[in-house]
Amino acid sequence: MQSEQWYNCLDPELEALRTRARNAVHAHNTCPPDARGAMAPELQALFARVGPDCLLEAPFHCAYGLNIRLGARVYFNAGCVILDTAQVQIGDDTMFGPHAQIYCAQHAKDPVERAKGLEIGITVTIGRNVWVGGGAIVMPGVTIGDNAIIGAGSVVTKDVAAGETAVGNPARPLTRR
């Protein structure tokens, strides 16, 4: 999984890692906000890196957590999801609207292989000072450059250049006048 090769997601070792993540997510999502602070300690301990002053509103969901690296001052509004079957790198000062989602997992296209649990995780990289609008979905393998904006409800299937605004399904750069 870590080497971006095809693997069986039904593996018991991976299930144990997902159970650990579900427990940390549950702790985050059920802790009273004044006791939880910016992020429940169980969730912060799960992530590979959490920069200073990050805030994850509840509810939040991640698949493993251990592949998530947050820069400083990253903000996730309520209902965000990260399916981190591969590395997810998020730069400083990046913000996510409600229900934004990041997907690293890609399942086998062949139905027989898919039924066996065959999938691949592909890294997602999001730069500094990016705004991802509410309900947007970032697909496996996408890189979003610094200072980019992703419009609400967009489905990002291809890289977005630094400073670009991309909208729609599939997301495309806005033309400049």
Rank of each mutant, 00 (worst) to 15 (best):
N169H: 06
P59G: 10
I150L: 09
D92Q: 10
I68F: 04
D84I: 07
E4F: 00
A21E: 06
L56T: 11
T123G: 03
V112P: 03
E119H: 05
D92T: 09
D93K: 06
P170E: 07
W131C: 00
V132D: 03
F76W: 12
L174W: 07
V124A: 11
I137N: 04
V50N: 02
P32L: 12
T30I: 04
C104Y: 01
V130R: 09
R18F: 01
N23T: 09
E15K: 15
A21Y: 05
S154V: 00
M139W: 01
L56F: 15
C54M: 12
P98V: 05
W6S: 09
I102P: 06
A100T: 11
D34H: 13
N129G: 02
D11I: 02
K158H: 14
V81T: 12
E57D: 12
Q87D: 10
N8Q: 07
I102E: 00
G51A: 11
A63C: 13
D84M: 09
C104E: 03
A86G: 10
N77K: 12
P52D: 14
A38W: 01
T19Q: 13
P140V: 04
F96C: 13
T157H: 02
M139R: 15
A115G: 14
Y7A: 04
E57W: 04
I144T: 08
G97R: 00
C62W: 03
G168I: 00
R20A: 13
D84S: 09
I126R: 03
I102V: 15
N8F: 01
A86W: 06
L66Y: 06
G37P: 04
N23L: 13
W6D: 15
A45R: 14
L10P: 01
Y75F: 15
T94P: 04
R172I: 00
D159N: 15
Y64K: 02
I137A: 10
G141C: 10
A148K: 11
N8T: 02
A48G: 09
A86P: 07
I144S: 09
L55D: 07
G121D: 06
A78H: 11
G37I: 12
N147F: 02
M39W: 02
E15A: 14
P173G: 15
I150K: 07
R69L: 05
I82S: 07
I102T: 03
K109H: 09
Y103W: 13
Y75L: 15
I90Q: 07
M95F: 05
V124M: 06
Q101L: 08
N67M: 05
G37N: 08
P12A: 14
G134L: 01
H99T: 09
L43R: 01
V160E: 11
P59D: 08
V167H: 00
D84G: 10
L10D: 12
R18S: 04
L46Y: 03
G91Q: 11
T125F: 04
I68W: 04
I68V: 15
T157Y: 01
G79H: 11
G117H: 08
H26E: 11
N147G: 04
W131G: 00
N147R: 15
M39P: 02
D93F: 04
D84E: 06
A152K: 01
C9V: 08
V142S: 10
I126L: 04
A86N: 11
W131I: 08
G91I: 10
L56N: 03
C31I: 05
